[in-house]
Design a binder for these strands. Structure first.
Lengths: 246, 246
DNA sequence: GCAATAGTGTCTCTAAGACAGTATCAC
DNA sequence: GTGATACTGTCTTAGAGACACTATTGC
């Protein structure tokens, strides 16, 4: 048996990330069935006979979160196929998808909404998640961190029109760093086709109103948005110029 | 039926890349069974009941190419699950893996070696491949191209000890560009933990012998090896300094 | 006016690219 | 010596980062 072709069922699981109140958050659902009943899990569902896994992911995205997958960033993270990852038989393997959403309210009265809620990624990594969803979450967050450097997914975290401060918050929250405001502004406005000005402005009540932008057509960021290096590396260098006090 | 959980079988397919005679090559096998009998295909095989897909990939790698997967770069490319990708029933989905190999001779008398051969990627992309293997090949090559920038997979194309010229050839062949020899030399020797000198030299008969290196411990290239930009982008800029003819 | 946020100018430093020049081999 | 390949030095320039400075709002 084990030396033969295995017959399996396949699920698509979703890591839906957003930013709420300055925190990177992930959508979790409470499991209503065995196995792992009662534990938080990533939303997902079974592949049907007439669809691809991308279609499964989009369908589940709509059912579980009410979000429209066609307007969302959606990307495959990878397959998880360890033989003991799911106690059910026949065995279940899963394909994880990363989805990026703006901060939208969840439809709590949804058809399939079994206690869906936003959890901060920091909290979710402390908790015990069902199956290998802890590992999947870690991989997806790492993928998002990497992709922010080279691809134009940052605007996917924002609403249709956004300010440069909001875009900067995406990088700061996902990377857990602080970025220089003036340099970030210059960098993103000069990056070809990354963001395009709409001509409108938005006032937050305090200070000068910020210009509004939309996502541009570029898929890649060239040159990339460099993630600040670990201070460990800079520590190795000596300062070349020394300020002289008179 | 189609609205229910689908029962599927799963394969792991391998895109094994190497460089031979200055050309990027991929290992293909001629299909001996229906469907697509006689057409070239990527090597691969079915997931067994007691293994993960990574284990399937390693097993097939050993069987089809005689290469030892433990010493090879192996990475998931993605899942291909379109309902009509395989005419068999129950349906078959596949997970593709990218493997990088040095230029080694293939064991032609292998147990499972059904007409395995190296094909240039350029040729393979012209031919009709079985299933959706043309698409898989394209995705894997694109992944390899991207990863060369940020990860230390280039030495995987070389034998255990290699010269900097051999390492440079990897980049030039995979990217299809020419790189400046002096600048490349400086870049890779100064990149921390990318390559380490062995102290030995190798003479090619012509010219000064080259120092030999091994792969270092780093997994990431920091700063990245930047891929030369399209000339199209530079065309958009005006030269800021103009040479004056007297 | 002041506080607050948005955005610009400018300097410094790193690192990439161009390319001249030097080193070490076979013959 | 010549020819070939390996490697180093140096100049130029693009781009990242630091940070002073200006602009535009609410009050």
């Amino acid at each position: 048996m084990s030396r033969q072709r295995a017959t399996v069922t396949v699920t698509a699981d979703l890591v839906i990330l957003t930013i709420r109140a300055g925190q990177l958050c992930v959508l979790t659902v409470e499991r209503g069935n065995e196995p792992f009943v009662g534990l938080p899990a990533l939303p997902g569902g079974f592949l049907r006979g007439d669809e691809s896994l991308e279609e499964t992911a989009c369908r589940e995205l709509a059912e579980e979160s009410g979000l429209d997958a066609t307007s969302l960033y959606l990307q495959q993270v990878g397959v998880y196929s360890a033989p003991d990852r799911d106690p059910r038989s026949p065995r279940v393997i899963t394909c994880a998808y990363l989805a990026i959403a703006p901060n939208l309210p969840l439809p709590q009265a949804g058809s399939d909404a079994r206690a869906a809620r936003w959890t901060t990624v920091a909290d979710a990594r402390q908790e015990q998640l069902a199956f290998d969803h802890g590992r999947i979450l870690a991989d997806a967050v790492e993928l998002a961190r990497d992709q922010l450097q080279f691809r134009t997914l940052a605007p996917s975290f924002c609403r249709h029109e956004f300010t440069i401060a909001e875009l900067r918050e995406v990088y700061e929250v996902v990377w857990g760093v602080e970025l220089d405001k003036p340099n970030f502004h210059r960098k993103v406005t000069e990056s070809p086709e990354f963001i395009v000005p709409t001509g409108r402005k938005r006032s937050t009540g305090n200070g000068r109103p910020a210009a509004l932008y939309r996502a541009g057509r570029a898929a890649e960021l060239a040159p990339p948005m460099m993630r600040p290096r670990r201070p460990a590396l800079q520590q190795a260098r000596r300062p070349l110029t020394v300020k002289i006090r008179e």
